[in-house]
Amino acid sequence: MSTISRSRSPIKLGMWLLLAPLCLWLLLLIILPHLELLTYSLSAPDEGGFTFEFYGEFFGESLYWRTFLRTAVMSILATILTLLIGFPVAFFIAKMIKGRSKGILFAMCLIPFWVSELVRTFGWMILLRESGVISTALQWLGFIDSGVELLYTDATIMLGLVYSAMLFMVVPLVSTLDSLDDSYIEAGYDLGGNNWNILREIVIPHAMPGIVSGCIIVFMLSLGNYLTPVLLGGKDSLWFTEQIYTQFITRFNWEQGSAFGILLLILSSLIVWLGLKVTGQSFTKTMG
């Protein structure tokens, strides 16, 4: 492309100057590293050459693929839960209140973003552990006799995932619902629809771009989460990112870790692609 000699004009020169940092960034920090990860996962460390050994290891060892499936299923579940819990809240903020209180409620939804994930997880640990706030409160109220350990279960992990991702669901939902004209809803009622009809036929179709982009981000955040499963799930949390970390940092088996990384990448791309296909949304529109 650079052979086009008309690129001498200042406008063209400007474009090339702006193109350079973008291309360097994407090439050096996104494309090449992921290609390198792929090559690494397919190369035999000692004898050199090409091997599927590390992928074979993944499918051969049930711990690995079970963890993989578990991570995927729990992330999908967390996404659905976040959507179900967040949607009424987003609807309320977007459609049912106006003015100052709307701004305040919306800002309150954003608060978790401003506080580090570690602090939030720490909060849940204080609430849920055996000597924690909830256990103590239940004892004090006489529901239980001795402390209960509420940490280190799958439900706790789920709670943590939903909590830390909630904001990324509510924000896109509020912004798409905001653009829904009230008169459509009114027209729906005038034509004899009930709440359920209107939700299904008017509100949800309109909110689809927001639902999809919220779901994609929440899913990615859950799938790639490390802190929540490790801190709230304890030793047996079995999250796939933990396996990747173990291979890279603890076992120093980078080839195996790379294979795991590529598998996680394939899984996440596949599910995002499926989500977009099923709902008929485009990636650029939902994310950009």
Binding site: L22, C23, L26, L29, I30, I31, L32, P33, H34, E36, L37, Y40, I216, I217, M220, L223, G224, Y226, T241, I244, Y245, F248, W254, G257, S258, G261, L264, L265, S268, S269, V272, F283, T284, M287, G288
Partner: peptide, 24 residues
């Protein structure tokens, strides 16, 4: 390029970390 530019939004942070680690 625009799609490529958006990709980091959907790459889990752990993966971005390890791929940059391996490459560098």
């Amino acid at each position: 390029l625009y799609v490529l530019m958006l990709l980091p939004l959907v790459i889990p942070g752990v993966l971005l970390g390890v791929s940059i680690l391996v490459f560098s």
